[in-house]
């Protein structure tokens, strides 16, 4: 009896040991690339190409960052990224919330078709629509502005869909009660619906943020001038055509781009994870 118990315990210990080791391995697998980016950015060019590579910089230097700042007008790119991202989030919210509310609380003619269109739009990648949109933008003479990176994303099908799902879970009596109190639609939306759908809203916002901050294909196609390009396109500019790929410089540029996102995540990771997981999709 006694030996059986210890055997069982040992086995469990072994299993959890293996499991723990494997978990550590996974941690390394997922975090190490970031570590490698950070470490590389503080290396000298010579230090980055020694073989075998060193886990810590031989000589710690800020040279790479200096190069990033001297070779790029970083503020320009940063500013564009910020403007585009903020604008997209604001417009998407202003347009998406009423639409989601209407879809969730009203039955009207054409609702089914429109909802189907929203769902269909959710599945159409921008990589298919870009040719026509490019032609439209060029006819509007917008290609030297930030508008082509903002306006086409005015309505987020995903956001509308997700918010609608969240709004639908708000009990009808609350809304009815509010209506009896003579609350207007806008008031119902802002005072009742939005607070109730807070975590969905956060998910949508986060997705919009990540989506536009990180977007690469769209600005690549839709920008003709450096003054309207975002950070994602700036890193390419750090590749010197001839002088060898200077990985520390590229990683330094990369770090500047990744840092804001990482910081936000570090600050709000619990909230993000929970809203992402639990409201991500239902």
């Amino acid at each position: 009896m006694h030996s059986k118990y210890t055997g069982f315990k040992l086995r469990r210990l072994a299993v959890s040991g293996i499991s723990f080791t494997f978990k550590l391995f996974m941690l390394v697998l997922f975090l190490f690339p970031f570590y490698w980016m950070i470490v590389t950015s503080f290396k000298t060019y010579g230090g980055s190409i020694v073989f075998p590579p060193t886990l810590l910089p031989h000589t710690f230097t800020l040279e790479a960052f200096e190069q990033v700042f001297t070779r790029l007008n970083l503020w320009n790119y940063l500013k564009n990224s910020v403007i585009v991202t903020v604008a997209v989030i604001v417009i998407q919210t202003l347009i998406g919330v009423p639409a989601a509310y209407a879809f969730s609380r009203y039955s009207f003619k054409g609702r089914g078709i429109m909802l189907a269109l929203v769902m269909a739009a959710f599945m159409v990648p921008t990589q298919i629509t870009f040719i026509t949109v490019y032609i439209m933008m060029s006819k509007l003479r917008w290609l030297n502005t930030l508008l082509p990176q903002i306006v086409p994303f005015g309505a987020s099908a995903y956001g509308i869909f997700l918010l609608r799902q969240a709004f639908m879970q708000v009990p009808t009596d609350i809304i009815e009660a509010a209506r009896l109190d003579n609350a207007g639609e806008i008031k119902i939306m802002t005072r009742i619906m939005l607070p109730a759908a807070k975590s969905s809203l956060m998910t949508v916002t986060l997705f919009s943020f990540v989506g536009s901050w990180n977007s690469y294909f769209w600005p690549l196609v839709m920008s003709n001038a450096e003054k309207v390009r975002p950070l994602t396109l700036a890193i390419e500019r750090l590749k010197d055509q001839d002088a060898g790929i200077n990985w520390p410089v590229i990683m330094a540029g990369n770090m500047i781009m990744v840092l804001p996102v990482l910081l936000i995540f570090l600050l709000m990771s619990n909230k993000i994870i929970s809203s992402m997981g639990y409201r991500g999709i239902k």
Partner: peptide
């Protein structure tokens, strides 16, 4: 001066911008 990348990028961007009228 605007650096547009490799020659192929300059070509592509120039053509695209001509089409765009800018």
């Amino acid at each position: 001066g605007v650096y547009q990348g490799y020659f192929s990028d300059v070509q592509a961007k120039t053509l695209a911008s001509i089409a765009a009228g800018d």
